[in-house]
Design a protein around this nucleic acid. Structure first.
Length: 269
DNA sequence: ATGACAACCTGTGGGC
DNA sequence: TGCCCACAGGTTGTCA
């Protein structure tokens, strides 16, 4: 479900509702997520006051006066503000109960997400992450440099979190189309100028998707329960067999690293 | 270091 | 109508 724009949408949705709220309790109904949720979470977070919400890669970092709650939404997770007394539905695994009779509810059918408590500033999962795609340090020159002598395809290269974070399957497909680059091309054989175009496309597509509240494919909802509206603007993702919006050629689909790639063989070289 | 691939899960949609 | 398989927004760990 969530790529970076969806995670950002979630952050913005919950931030105003948890700021200055104190945690009354944590209800862990199902600790078996991507990483087992520590029973100590309740001990640590009870009584903590939320200060603000940050994002690093696709991790949501909710700072408190005692430490930081770190949440990843995996493939199917969502985090919403709910009335605390609202009955928990199937796959509502964790509630962080607040002092205003509401709660932050974590829902995740596939359980690929995670929830950790950070006493300090760091966590092993946050080490070795590449730059943020919307930061100035993410540039064409950077991608060009990192890609030299690498044989992996350009699509898999930009989806590698050690290279740059937050570029998931949907937006990788979209950005490569926008930049006119064949996703199957070896990353080490993409010219510097084309990496400039690719970086511009990545920043554009992510910024626009954030403005639209993310992409709702099945059931994504932001922190306030609203769906995203970017799906209607997708150029290639999910459009295999349909005409290219630029040249009308039927879009092709291939598999790369087990993920679906859709592209135009005329517009992307 | 790099790359290829399996693994972790449940839900859903398409083909038969 | 119903069953089975393939696949779905992500990331980590392992092995060659």
């Amino acid at each position: 479900m969530p790529e970076l724009p969806e995670v950002e949408t979630t952050c913005r949705g919950i931030a105003p509702h948890i700021a200055d709220r104190r945690v009354v309790s944590a209800i862990i109904r199902e600790p078996r997520l991507r990483w087992p949720v520590s029973p100590d979470l309740e001990t640590h977070i009870r009584g903590a006051r939320f200060l603000g919400v940050r994002r690093r890669a696709k991790y949501i970092l909710m700072d408190t006066d005692r430490g930081t709650l770190m949440v990843h939404l995996g493939m199917s997770g969502s985090l919403r503000i709910m009335p605390a007394e609202a009955p928990a539905l199937f796959h509502d695994h964790i509630d962080i109960v607040l002092d205003d009779r509401r709660c932050l509810r974590y829902h995740d059918p596939r359980r690929f997400g995670s929830m950790h408590w950070l006493s300090g500033e760091s966590h092993p999962l946050l080490d070795h992450l590449g730059p943020e795609p919307l930061s100035p340090s993410f540039s064409g020159a950077y991608l060009y440099e990192r890609s030299r002598r690498r044989s992996t395809s350009v699509k898999q290269f930009i989806m590698d979190g050690k290279v740059v974070v937050g570029v998931g399957n949907i937006y990788a497909n979209e950005a490569l189309f926008m930049a006119g680059i064949d996703p199957k091309r070896a990353s080490g054989r993409v010219a510097a100028a084309r990496y400039e175009a690719l970086v511009e496309a990545i920043k554009d597509v992510l910024s626009n998707a954030i403005e639209q509240g993310g992409t709702t494919l099945r059931d994504f909802v932001g922190g306030d329960g609203q769906p995203g509206y970017f799906a209607q603007q997708l150029r290639v993702y999910g459009r295999q067999g349909k005409p290219c919006r630029s040249c009308q050629t039927a879009l092709r689909e291939v598999r790369q690293g087990g993920r679906s790639t859709v592209f135009c063989r005329v517009c992307q070289r």
